[in-house]
Simulated scan of single mutants.
Amino acid sequence: MTDLRFPGEWEPHAATWLAWPHNRMDWPGRFHAIPFVYAEILRHLARRERVDLLVQDEAAQRRAQAFLARAHAPLENIRFHIRPTDRIWMRDSGCTFVKDGDRLKAVAWTFNAWAKYDNWQRDREVAPFMAQVAGAPVIRGRRGDQPLVLEGGSIDADGRGTLLTTEECLLSDVQVRNPGMTRDAYERAFAEHLGIRKVIWLGDGVKGDDTHGHVDDLSRFVAPRTVVTVVEPRKDDPNHAPLAENLRRLKAATDADGHPLEVIELPMPGPLYYRGVRLPASYGNFYIANGLVLCPVFNDPHDRHALDTLAKVFPDREVVGIYSGDFIWGFGAMHCMSQQQPA
């Protein structure tokens, strides 16, 4: 597996994988708005690349098709698959596609609903299904003779052997995915399964993150040697200190080839609450597609700054803001819901 490589998200895609929303308990009291958010995402995304969309059953497929047609989403570029899921967070339940030379392969991690919920049985079957449809041989994620529990939202890569993750998610004693697994053991697993040569460990994630520290709310590679990271200048906000520490670590880090990183700061939106719960609203949860970047926005004064920053980072892509004030009540946004299949 010397040629194994985890491509950067900005590299060409064959498709994006999504699942049509159905679990009302993920957005209690606000589910009615979620299909409208999905339709807007699909309207933009399916203009740029094929979308492979999971639905619960034939009736759900008909409802989704009718909804998307009314929203003028390009149905001819949406491929429906009947595959029941527990939730729709394809970044975490789906496989991680890698390249072995010119050959596409699929790393199927073990999914256990973030070591927090008990309804994961259907989601656990999503990764091998994706691999089968894509015609990609499966690499079973393992740590020695044990299955390796991991979510795609906990890792981000530059396509050249460097990976970002967080200590809060993988090494803390809360929501423990792999009891007893050490930093070195994770690094060996990333090398074996993804061809990673260097792991950059950040500290804590954003407040309100149901996953306990996923890196895709924090810091993202946007090109080789270039990272976008969220910052919170307000010192009275609980995100200020951990995000400042992550920024410090990135500025001190080098990539797998020993090159320093260019670090671009992205603002955080103002605190967002619903029913007294701090929500993990972050502009860092954007998704990079072919010719397109989808970024969550929140009707916040910082929306414009975030979109302008990403437009400068991606001058050759259309940057589109997707209102996510309702969507984030499900504790995820554009990146959490999607999984790219490299071309």
Score class of each variant (00 low, 15 high):
A343M: 13
P267T: 00
H32K: 14
T162S: 13
R47W: 04
R317H: 15
I155N: 12
I288N: 08
P35I: 00
S282E: 02
G258I: 01
T226P: 00
P342R: 01
D92F: 00
P238Y: 09
V133Q: 06
Q121I: 11
L247N: 06
P267I: 00
K312A: 10
L54S: 04
G153F: 07
L247Y: 06
D92T: 01
R62A: 15
G213H: 04
W27S: 02
V37L: 08
P179S: 09
D204T: 13
F97T: 01
V199L: 09
G29R: 10
H81Q: 04
P233H: 00
A157C: 14
M25R: 14
D210V: 12
R183D: 14
N77M: 06
G8D: 04
W10F: 06
R183E: 15
R30H: 12
V277I: 15
R278H: 04
E192Q: 15
A39K: 06
W10P: 00
G208W: 05
A241M: 10
D216L: 09
G135K: 13
N23T: 04
P21K: 02
E318T: 09
A189T: 12
V149W: 14
I288K: 07
G159V: 09
H44P: 02
A252F: 01
R50T: 14
P12E: 10
I41F: 03
D173C: 07
P267L: 01
I200N: 09
G94M: 00
L68A: 03
V222H: 07
A333H: 12
P296M: 13
H44V: 09
